[in-house]
Amino acid sequence: MKLKKEFESFFRKIRIDDETHVLKEKRDILQDDIESKLPEILADHGITISKSDIRMIDQGSYKYKTTITADVVDRDVAVIIPLDINDNPDPREIKGYLKDSITIWQRSVSVKEPCVRASYYENGEEWLHIDLPLYADDGGFKYLARGKATSDDYTWEPADPDGLNADLCDKILGHDQLRRIICYIKKWRNEKYAGSSGDHEIPPSIGLTYLACDCFIEQTGSDGDDDLLAFQKTMQGIKDRFVCTCYDGEVLTADISRRLPVEPYSDVFQKMKDSSTSYMVKFYKRLSKAVDNLTNAVNVESPHDAAEYIQKVLGTDFDVPPKEAVTAVTQSKREHSFG
């Protein structure tokens, strides 16, 4: 099986199995702050909740073990509080209270459109942010607080954070090859969008994860999992789901949708589409290029040449085995001296 060892080595390099101790501690401290301060702050504004009413749950890739190494560690922890959204129609205010509860000098706190973000810096550089999406639990129905601090565009959006977690965990946990393929796709995304900074320019992890789950077909051979083939087929499957319009060989528009399987059943790529049509075209073109390289890697005989194609997709962390010709000429059968 081609490049089996190299894919194993690559996955070992990029995978993050679990939170580090420092992350756990930061998260615990954050949780303590929220539990101890948020009820008081809310009480000052006529909202009564107790410490035990606050529920915080892991979200995102740490939950279903598809986190990969990155320059900035990104954690998602949902904060769920009991709240009547009719009495408190402005989610920006509640997000502001959450922000106040965690604002201390050790962290920089800001209100983002879907969450409150606590960022941590060392030597002037951000190394960790913990995103805290805030949910109102109103009579058993959950609503995500959306809207930037000063934006007029805000809403309590119906949501199902537990259902989303359960769905993704069910799809991914215990399916190791799929988990690895999701990590490869995220690594590809990080490589190809390393210089991108525009809002919603980058395909969201949740979208890539769901597309991977949809298009993945397990590939195994007599000597184990064939990650190269599984990766190529999954990426090809994602590409095939695009609907494009072309003129004179040029892609003019590209569209792909993936709706969440739970409330609010929204398209995870909608914000990307709304931001700029060029983002989806760029996404499609980059994906197509990756598929071409992966297909070449599958088709060439030489592991060296195949790995060079893979490097174009996954970057230089992917090992390239030596050229066979060099190996044959110079690497004689090994002998040992009697040391």
Partner: peptide, 14 residues
């Protein structure tokens, strides 16, 4: 012993 992203040591060791 206190890695930010990669956990180099086990929970027990920590």
């Amino acid at each position: 012993v206190y890695g930010k992203q990669i956990e180099h040591i086990s929970f027990d060791t920590y």
